[in-house]
């Protein structure tokens, strides 16, 4: 009886000592409120969701997903393969290749150019006295605020780049640059510079500073430190992020064609406009296969990097 009581007391005490944060609690309340408001005010439950016309439409749509030559007859492998082969030869393979190339070109561009912003955005490097304790009063206020400004502007720009979705970037750039692969690749690259720049800057800031500080103490310049120590130390993580972002690039590349550059998304949009739903569905599945392939390659490479530090 006595031990029971003391156990209960101990539990109660632990319960009272649990970490609490007012910010987290208010945030959760706010979140629940916004979720409730969204469901209530979003017009999600209009009465015509399942009216007769919509159901008819759905039924027709589901029927038209079956390959056209097979509609209204028994399934036949020869006909199905013939249909598949024709679409793939006409545009399927070419669209897949273009989409893949878009994703690779974009991520390589983003990866290379984000390195510059990474260094500028890293608070440990972009400062008057990187990695060393600052000697008091040695540096002018002006110099300090100049470096602070460099970091602030770089970070603000990175936030802006990643706040605008790839699709919007592509839409704007297509009008400005005309239809070619450039706007699509640049749109993907710009958004990913924003993300890679931020993630990599955090990696650089979290590096163990002993080696970097001793290099600086020996008089190495910022660029020398970056080339000789920061890059080799941060590389495995940066490559991880690179491949992780490449997966998303493949994902986005499948839809950016919808804006007009001939790739997978273009043909999907085209099939949709012509109401050829069987072909649209096939192309969407092709895109899914490409994405799964990309995920697989990325997972394998990331495992390779992880096991070879």
């Amino acid at each position: 009886m006595d031990t029971d009581n003391s156990v209960n007391l101990a539990i109660e005490q632990l319960h009272r000592q649990r970490p609490r944060s007012r910010f987290v609690r208010y945030s959760v309340c706010l979140m629940l409120l916004v979720i409730a408001l969204s469901w209530l005010l979003g017009d999600f439950f209009t009465t015509d969701l399942f009216n007769g016309r919509r159901l008819q439409n759905l039924q027709r749509f589901l029927q038209e997903l079956i390959p056209y030559p097979l509609q209204g007859r028994a399934f036949d492998w020869a006909i199905a393969l013939d249909w598949l082969d024709k679409i793939l030869a006409d545009r399927g393979w070419q669209a897949l290749g273009t989409t893949l190339a878009i994703s690779v070109a974009a991520i390589v561009m983003a990866g290379c150019s984000s390195l510059v912003f990474t260094l500028l955005a890293a608070r440990t490097l972009s400062t008057t006295e990187p990695f060393l304790p600052a000697p008091l009063g040695k540096h002018s206020r002006f110099k300090q605020s100049a470096w602070w400004l460099v970091v602030a502007i770089t970070r603000l720009m990175l936030i802006f780049l990643r706040a605008i979705p790839e699709y919007v970037w592509a839409f704007l750039l297509l009008a400005v640059l005309g239809i070619s692969a450039w706007p699509i690749v640049l749109a993907l690259a710009l958004h990913n510079i924003g993300i890679l720049g931020k993630l990599s800057a955090e990696v650089v800031e979290n590096l163990p500073t002993a080696a970097l500080a001793s290099l600086r103490g020996l008089g190495a310049s910022r660029l020398q430190i970056a080339g000789a120590a920061i890059m080799p130390m941060a590389l495995p993580r940066l490559l991880m992020f690179f491949f992780y972002r490449w997966e998303t690039c493949v994902r986005e590349a499948t839809v950016l064609g919808m804006l007009g550059f001939v790739s997978l998304g273009f043909w999907i949009q085209d099939a949709r406009a012509r109401n050829v739903y069987d072909e649209m569905f096939l192309l969407i599945i092709l895109g899914a296969a490409l994405i799964m392939g990309g995920d697989l390659v990325s997972a394998i490479v990331r495992a390779l990097i992880r096991n070879n530090r």
Partner: peptide, 28 residues
Amino acid sequence: INLMRSIHELLWAVLLLAAFGIHHMGAA
């Protein structure tokens, strides 16, 4: 899970638009 993930949001939107017409629930 893999099938759900591998089709882009906008392509799901296109599919749902074709199946149901424009409706807010489809977008969500």
